[in-house]
Nucleic acid binder design. Structure first.
Lengths: 209, 209
DNA sequence: ACAAGAAATGAATGATGATTCACTACTTAT
DNA sequence: ATAAGTAGTGAATCATCATTCATTTCTTGT
């Protein structure tokens, strides 16, 4: 034997892989999955197209990884917001706000994750993550029921409705125009987030504020 | 001049067009838009592929027509349910129920209309129709506020949340498996519809029942 | 029956991009 | 320096289907 994979090589490969991931991320955050071409990604990452395939099984696979990473980050943020002090209703509100506000801060990526039409494999991933959000919310709702700050209800169903209500409210503002641009008036943001949250909290608690 | 389009011919063409539409509808109701191939549709309709293009500009166009027709039918049903007697809250509930129940009765078509990843042009149509639903709901909410059976709120925002909550609740149950099948346990249906409606009405009225 | 046009046909074309793979360049151990 | 093996390359290939269009078939008015 003459060549053996060495630590240095391992690192170099890992770096290339990371660069590919970063550039894919950038492409997606810029125009969504559909418009992210392998050749473009390769170009950005400074590697040949073929090299992509030494690091990822397929385009679908690469995208799935991006999707998972990006979504997990969001899910974690929501989980974090749910993990503070205060009663369940307060924590839920903070979480919903977190979700919505982050989406509006990175609208194209949010659109890609939430609403962009994607291939079946990614759609699969999307369902998984929508479930992940729903489960976080569900847990919090159960807590709230136990604490008594949220009335008894089908926590699972309510959580699904929360996810849907937020997603739908964001899809309109987030959707790129035909020209591929996304524009959100800064003024609207707060009001939008506030009214989404009002509906959701009312749906949960049956209480107006 | 020797040939002139005659009534008989006009009818024959109209029939062919209709047959194409019907077969497209069938294909979509069977596997969604993505899997509906022009050649397959032509085969079913008993015409050559080229003939499709004498009746429709493009596949996209044909699909857009199917989408519009199918969705308009649903929107009309909801409008109908909203146009009965009773206070606004009652009518809204009936409308939501109509929406959800019809979706569960034709799950693949409902999925195709609500959640299937589709090309940009169809996605455009979809947004239009989601808006159409939202506007119906919005109107009813305003009525309710005026009547006093629904508390004052941002009707537009609430209507969007309604559409989202319902759609999201249905997407899970409606989504085809990898095998392309959709199965909904009969037992679940009523309970699902009931709990969606409970959340939504509570979100609207702030009243538990 | 014929000519003028229209409709229908479906094999061939075309467009799009992901993916491959024969080859080159590089790394390592001896 | 050399051999053995791996990584990188990117032009060529491949797959998928919508779409076209030269040709054939059908309709109609004379």
């Amino acid at each position: 034997m003459a060549y053996r994979e060495t630590e240095k090589m391992r690192q170099r490969k890992a770096q290339a892989r990371q660069r590919i991931i970063d550039c894919t991320y950038e492409c997606v955050a810029n125009g969504g999955f559909r418009s992210a071409r392998i050749t473009r990604i390769a170009g950005l990452a400074g590697v040949a197209t073929g090299t992509i395939y030494r690091h990822f099984e397929s385009r679908e696979d690469l995208f799935a990884e991006i999707f998972r990473t990006a979504t997990q980050r969001e899910v974690d943020k929501v989980a974090e917001a749910l993990d503070t002090d205060g009663d369940a209703a307060v924590r839920l509100e903070a979480a919903l706000r977190q979700f919505a506000e982050r989406a509006m801060r990175g609208p194209m990526m949010a659109w890609a994750l939430i609403a962009e039409p994607v291939d079946p494999k990614l759609e699969e991933e999307r369902l998984v993550y929508r479930r992940a959000y729903a489960e976080l919310f569900e847990k919090a709702i159960r807590d709230g029921i136990e604490e008594g700050c949220i009335p008894d209800q089908d926590a699972r169903q309510s959580s699904t409705c929360l996810v849907g209500a937020i997603a739908e409210s964001l899809v309109g503002p987030l959707s790129p125009t035909l020209a591929g641009q996304i524009t959100i008036a800064d003024i609207d943001k707060d009001k939008l987030v506030d009214s989404i949250i009002r509906f959701c909290m009312q749906g949960l608690t049956g209480t107006r504020r």
